[in-house]
Design a protein around this nucleic acid. Structure first.
Ligand SMILES: NC(=O)c1ccc[n+]([C@@H]2O[C@H](COP(=O)([O-])OP(=O)(O)OC[C@H]3O[C@@H](n4cnc5c(N)ncnc54)[C@H](O)[C@@H]3O)[C@@H](O)[C@H]2O)c1
Ligand SMILES: NC(=O)c1ccc[n+]([C@@H]2O[C@H](COP(=O)([O-])OP(=O)(O)OC[C@H]3O[C@@H](n4cnc5c(N)ncnc54)[C@H](O)[C@@H]3O)[C@@H](O)[C@H]2O)c1
Lengths: 235, 235
DNA sequence: ACGCTCTTGTGAACGTTTGCACAAAGTCGG
DNA sequence: CCGACTTTGTGCAAACGTTCACAAGAGCGT
């Protein structure tokens, strides 16, 4: 991404333009940890404490937060409540994001039942399926609608985020249809590489890939043969 | 990406050492695409074709594969079957990986029912839960065992991979116990940062984080794209 | 055998991310 | 108001990752 543009920013206004992708991916973790501190009525945290709770290096955390602006107080730390607000705002969580889930199988049902889903501004607008046996059943307080109603649901609720939890074989078709109806952010659980036009954002969650990565490291460990716990390289 | 607590620089003479983490994360994708080619009885693929199917740049793909060795033929491409074998071997998929799933709730059941699970060398050794109501029920051909039997199950099946699908509150305790029984690879679905000793590899899958990243980009798009509406971005 | 075509494998340039180290900026007790 | 102390914010260098671009190698037709 091109940062480095003339920083003719009208002062501290770090626009949401130049935040590194790696930082974005960590902000939700910080946010979660911040909520935990807030629940314990802790008013301020240092970068060291926050970083420890989030499992990252404190310099990295400070640099990450510095991209949002200068919200800390030297000698003191960060105000938890204020930082929660700033991070939320940066991530776009101060608004409501209606989500449509396509595929009400094992995974789709688990997702719909997932409490943490609705907790942070994400609201299930509808759960869709194509199976007549499934359509009409009740899941987590939502009646499963026919996938044929996708266009209406997306339009009526102004859905911009779609979750694909259908079998791999139909995922691309579902994706195309979501895109055609105006959905521009897609979270894909099916084990396929989705093809989308530019301007559409796809993220994938893939259990199988994660397991394979774990297997690689597990194998390496066993092959390399650690005689005793000599290699203390831990991050 | 989650932490990798194993050797930051484990190259000490062994040939195929030092494969970049980013490459490892892509190998499973290549493998999946390769299987798709194999099923169509396509004997060879060029890096260009493979890369397109995997959704990456072809130079990147070639460099990734070059880390495993020189398995292509100039002017021709890669032999699909041979490459499947080489990638599988590199990932450690030529052996069987018994997996224990802890937590037989909505998500745990979906995972246990997931077909693609067993398909690539991963075998569910047991599904564990602590709820007496759940223990004893049948899920995907597995009787749910009491979590108290973790030690026996792990020992008997030589489990080295554990999947945590319990509520966030108990995830750390479950993790500690898994580690104590000798599990060194953990896939965590609970929305918490797990603390593990070095030598243990943790990866996390976090729906909520993925949604928040999507929300960030969606917000950016909508802010950037609407010229007439309020530009309340830079305060 | 030769030249043509195709495609790999990789050196080098470029971009991104990380972590250190420290000045700057704040708090606090006296 | 000062000096001791704490902690942020960031310049910088190194590590890591991506992409370009092309020489070298392989197959094929003649
Ligand atoms: N279950 C898991 O833990 C898990 C893990 C990783 C990945 N996945 C992937 O997630 C996807 C769903 O898994 P699952 O276990 O829920 O499968 P499932 O078969 O239980 O459910 C799939 C559902 O999608 C519906 N469907 C099929 N085609 C459709 C279409 N065109 N439009 C709308 N709905 C349609 C089916 O009727 C069914 O209800 C699969 O691609 C699977 O590989 C699942
Ligand atoms: N369901 C989803 O789609 C989803 C998505 C993302 C993350 N998650 C996370 O995955 C986890 C599980 O979600 P879920 O929807 O399946 O929850 P759930 O409440 O349906 O299931 C949790 C299960 O864990 C069992 N359990 C609790 N403590 C245990 C212990 N100490 N040992 C063994 N088992 C124990 C419970 O008895 C229950 O059966 C949660 O942390 C959730 O935040 C779920």
């Amino acid at each position: 991404m091109s940062r480095r543009a003339v920083s003719a920013n009208g002062r501290s206004g770090h626009g949401s333009q130049g935040i590194p992708e790696a930082t974005i991916a960590r902000l939700p973790v910080y946010l979660r940890v911040l909520y935990a501190f807030a629940e314990q009525d802790i008013p301020t945290v240092s970068s060291e404490e926050l970083a420890a709770a989030a499992g990252v290096n404190s310099a990295k955390l400070r640099k990450d937060l510095s991209h949002l602006g200068s919200y800390g107080t030297r000698g003191v730390g960060y105000d938890v409540e204020y930082l929660v607000y700033q991070v939320s705002r940066e991530l776009g969580l101060t608004q409501d994001w209606p989500v449509v889930i396509v595929g009400a199988g094992n995974l789709g049902r688990a997702l719909a039942n997932y409490g943490g889903f609705a907790s942070r501004g994400f609201r299930i607008a509808a759960v869709l399926d194509s199976d007549p046996e499934v359509v009409g059943t009740q899941i987590a307080g939502h009646g499963v609608l026919d996938v044929e109603q996708m266009e209406q649901v997306v339009a009526r609720h102004r859905v911009s985020i779609g979750v694909i939890a259908t079998p791999a074989g139909t995922a691309q078709a579902v994706c195309d249809r979501l895109v055609a109806t105006g959905v521009t952010s897609i979270l894909n659980f099916a084990p396929v590489v989705l093809n989308v036009p530019s301007g559409v954002d796809v993220r994938k969650v893939d259990l199988s890939i994660e397991l394979q990565i774990l297997a690689f490291h597990a194998q390496r460990r066993s092959v390399v043969r650690v005689p005793q716990d000599a290699q203390a390289v831990g991050r």
